[in-house]
Design a binder for these strands. Sequence first.
DNA 1: GGCACTTTGTGCATTCCTTCACAAACGCCT
DNA 2: AGGCGTTTGTGAAGGAATGCACAAAGTGCC
Lengths: 222, 222
Amino acid sequence: MTPLPSHRDIPAATVTRLPVYLRALHAVATRGVTRVSSEELAIDAGVRSTQLRKDLSHLGSHGVRGVGYDVGRLTAELTSALGLNRAWPVAIVGMGNLGRALAAYGGFATEGFHVVALLDRDHAIVGERIGELTVTAMSRLPGLVRELGIAIGVIATPAASAQLAADALVSAGVEAILTFAPVALTLPERVSTRSVDLATELHVLAFLAQHDRLAADVGSPG
Amino acid sequence: MTPLPSHRDIPAATVTRLPVYLRALHAVATRGVTRVSSEELAIDAGVRSTQLRKDLSHLGSHGVRGVGYDVGRLTAELTSALGLNRAWPVAIVGMGNLGRALAAYGGFATEGFHVVALLDRDHAIVGERIGELTVTAMSRLPGLVRELGIAIGVIATPAASAQLAADALVSAGVEAILTFAPVALTLPERVSTRSVDLATELHVLAFLAQHDRLAADVGSPG
DNA sequence: GGCACTTTGTGCATTCCTTCACAAACGCCT
DNA sequence: AGGCGTTTGTGAAGGAATGCACAAAGTGCC
């Protein structure tokens, strides 16, 4: 009773790797290659080939035994699985340093993600022009989400305002949130969240660097 | 023969949560609280209390049964475990939009991380002043790393230059790398890496949003 | 001082993820 | 057409992380 291979029940760990595979495929395609083995693609993606194959198996079989994967076909398959064959209008809340940088950052524009709304709580910033957009007040968020079909919100506010921004996005009808604020957000189950936190990443690196340094003092080289 | 509780053998998943606990502790301390239970702290950190306790147990016992944790003492313990009671000079490679934003971003300055060097391969940018620093040429990297004691490098270059930047950082003697470039880096074992990738995060959210949307069409609300 | 209450620290079960090992399936060469 | 080499897809094993349940250890009241 499943017309499509069914995108449900794909392990979370696999989902986070699918974008990596897609990028590896683009790199391969740029080299003019039209067929690729799981081994080659895995190297580009920085994973083991068996992991790549198992991950792809969750989307259904699209390789040919003894040959490999058709680059174009697999690209289409991943693009479809990730939902990237449609436009994803994005709203950014919080127009400080980070928000401005994100609005200007080209990385968002690739593959269907278009920043279509910039918002800030501070009325001193509202009305300011940033790139091709004008900063609007938070009160206009629900209307914008409805009119422009915004499904993804980005939180670039200070930590203290993040929960407020999240609540506003959720009640406006956004389905997924990417937050840069270093706080745990309380959200309804149905809203997906991803968190990017520079300070945390640096902390982890500090731990690892110190750790390896200690290990080097104790253990023998080699 | 271990004078300290030994910071080795801490699960990777735990390490990534330690910074979150530290931040939760700061939030608690700001409220003027001096003692906190694992339950309260876990809520602030967005995890289960049992997970918090198990994570902390890897650092040794620092709570008091029946009472909870001393905020100051636990903060000190985590700070020490993460290696944050010393300065961490940081170099940023790649002074495009992202690199400039990172150089200006205050989040780096907190807790010992100081951006002390900005580098770019492009000689047209070298010499330019950004904030309090001047962009220097890649050739000066080894000297800077040695003189300033730089242990952490940040890669903010385009994907195509990322491996080059990584090689330069590694041979200059950097111990850990935070990269924003969406490519798998090939690095020696001893160098720690963390990757932050905005496009990947958006892709994952697109997948989840589409997925939930499909599920909502099929399943019943409740 | 002893008892009731609270909260930590942890062995154990469970679930999730990764890796291994190998059969199934394909192209190619003769 | 048949056999050989290659590569996929996957069951099963192994390992890691999470959550449960409870004993151990402390405080405070009577």
